[in-house]
Amino acid sequence: MRFFAAVALFVLWLVLSASYDLIHVATGAVVASLVVWLSPSGSSHVRRFSWMAALAYIPWLFGRVLKSGLHVSRLILDPALPIAPELVHHKTNLSRDGELVVLGNSITLTPGTITVEVAPGELIVHAIDAKSHQDLSRGVFDDRVSRMFSAKEDSQ
């Protein structure tokens, strides 16, 4: 498994690097192995993972990003600058590392909300105004993310 990770990183290096002489290819191989060797191994961070749900998640997330991006642009370009920043304590029933990473990253990616602190069960989110975090507070993001990790066992 770790060998495959090293191969994947090496392929990524080859794609991004423009030169294929010995020194550059060798550097890529060394760096790829080093990164895999240094990174923590082992435990799975998720229960299960549904590729179908993940594929559906990407366009959905981009739609969200576009919508809130237009909203934040309107706020910034408004001469009165009508922002009302607040820190929101967002309770979630996601607890695994992988799930929290996807949730936190999606929140940060969406303009108008940014993840400040992460702990299992609770995220501190900074929102630029109330409209930006209303969907998050309604649990729309949590639903989508838990669908991707098919956390049916989780909802007791």
């Binding site: 990003v65 991006g69 934040v72 642009s73 990616l109 303009p111 909300t113 940014i114 900074h126």
Partner: peptide, 10 residues
């Protein structure tokens, strides 16, 4: 940081 995510993600 919000305007940063505007430049990055869009």
């Amino acid at each position: 940081a919000h305007s940063l995510s505007l430049t990055d993600s869009l």
